[in-house]
Computed example of a mutant assay.
Amino acid sequence: MTKKTQILVIGHNDDGCTPAHEKIAYEIGCEVAKSNCVLMTGGLGGVMKAAAKGSHDSNGLTVGIIPQDDPMHANEFCDIVIPSGMGLTRDFLTALSADGIIIVGGGSGTLSEICAAYMHKKPMVAIRNTGGAADKFIDGYVDHRKNVKIIGVDTAKDAVKKILELLHGN
Rank of each mutant, 00 (worst) to 15 (best):
T89S: 15
V148S: 08
S55W: 03
L167H: 02
I102Q: 01
K136D: 13
I24D: 03
I114S: 10
I103M: 11
A74S: 13
M119K: 08
G140F: 00
I163K: 03
V142T: 12
I150T: 12
A116I: 03
P19C: 11
I65P: 02
L44Q: 11
G100V: 09
A134P: 08
I127N: 05
I127V: 14
H56T: 13
Y26L: 07
E76L: 05
P83N: 05
G64Y: 02
G105Y: 09
P123N: 13
M40I: 15
F77Q: 01
D99I: 10
I82L: 15
A51Q: 02
I80S: 00
P71R: 00
D99Y: 07
A156G: 12
D135I: 07
F137Y: 15
E165S: 12
I65R: 04
G87P: 11
E31F: 00
K122E: 11
G152R: 07
I7V: 10
L167C: 04
S55P: 06
V81W: 06
G11R: 03
F92G: 10
T130L: 05
Q68F: 15
D139Y: 05
A98V: 04
C37I: 03
L88G: 15
P71S: 04
I82G: 04
A117L: 13
D79I: 07
D158T: 04
M1Y: 05
F137T: 08
I10S: 13
M124C: 05
E76F: 00
D135V: 04
M72V: 12
D14A: 10
M86E: 12
A52F: 01
A156D: 12
N170W: 08
E76G: 02
C78H: 00
D154G: 13
D14N: 14
M1G: 14
I80M: 15
A33V: 06
D154S: 13
K121G: 13
N75G: 06
